[in-house]
């Protein structure tokens, strides 16, 4: 089943389109990888899907029984977080906020949800640590746990492995892969690590102007000129 269908989508800034005429679908259970050069509009597309940014034209259609609120989001790292005084548990819990409306305090249900997300990602031991003192890999896991807290039907990850060393990257991919295949979470991941990202994904969306746009199965992507160029560049 298609959870999200995107038709003729055009997004941009200050009147200039960044991505135009985009068509693709995200189906339940997909592991979709979004590739493209810097500035090709990957993050902008992600924001448009999440409703953080409005589209110039075109449609983002959500399947019946599926809504934006069921997407867990892991943003590209922001500046503010570096010196932010926050405990790990607090950060993970804040993922529950969206579903809470005006309710002021976390109840037992939210705490249980946060605890189980942390359990799933193996960060229960660092529950009481301070977020800013964690390593890059641990921080990414905390943010992923927060995303899972907010929703676990689909997760949207924007360059989750950029700051990680190869072993942590591999470990992170393993976690995502297990969420996708064991728990049936639909995964949409923006990445620059073409080779690593293609290993587990079943579909690829490549952004980058009219001539180098691609959407389709991963197996087909690696055969195209575009795919070969991107994979070759990494090795």
């Amino acid at each position: 089943m298609n959870l999200i269908e995107i038709r003729d989508l055009t997004i941009g800034y200050d009147g200039k389109p960044v991505v135009s005429g985009l068509n693709f679908d995200i189906s339940e259970g997909d592991y979709l990888c979004i590739l493209g050069e810097n500035g090709s509009g990957k993050s902008s597309l992600v924001k448009a899907i999440l409703g953080l940014k409005s589209a110039y034209s075109g449609h983002i259609h959500f399947a019946q029984g599926f809504s934006r609120r069921e997407i867990g989001y892991m943003p590209q790292k922001t500046e503010v977080q570096r010196d932010f005084p926050a405990g790990v548990f607090e950060v993970v819990l804040s993922g529950c906020q969206g579903a809470m409306g005006l309710k002021p305090f976390y109840g037992r249900a939210e705490k249980r949800r946060a605890a189980s997300a942390m359990e799933r990602l193996g960060i229960t031991e660092i529950k009481n640590e301070c977020y800013r003192n964690l390593s890059g890999g641990q921080q990414q896991r905390v943010l992923l746990a927060r995303a899972l807290c907010s929703a676990d039907r689909m997760i949207l990850l924007d360059e989750p492995t950029t700051a990680l060393d190869p072993p942590s990257t591999a470990e992170f991919y393993r976690i995502i892969e297990s969420l996708n295949s064991d728990d049936g979470v639909t995964v949409v991941m923006v990445s620059h690590d073409t080779a690593g990202a293609l290993e587990n994904s079943n579909r690829v969306l490549h952004l980058g102007g009219m001539e180098s746009m691609f959407f389709g199965e991963t197996a087909d992507y690696v055969k195209t000129k575009l795919g070969k160029k991107f994979l070759g560049g990494d090795e």
Partner: peptide, 16 residues
């Protein structure tokens, strides 16, 4: 808790 969430990561909060 909401001020914490919005201060920590505004775009995530908006998205959820």
């Amino acid at each position: 808790n909401k001020i914490f969430a919005v201060t920590f990561d505004e775009s995530f909060s908006r998205a959820t």
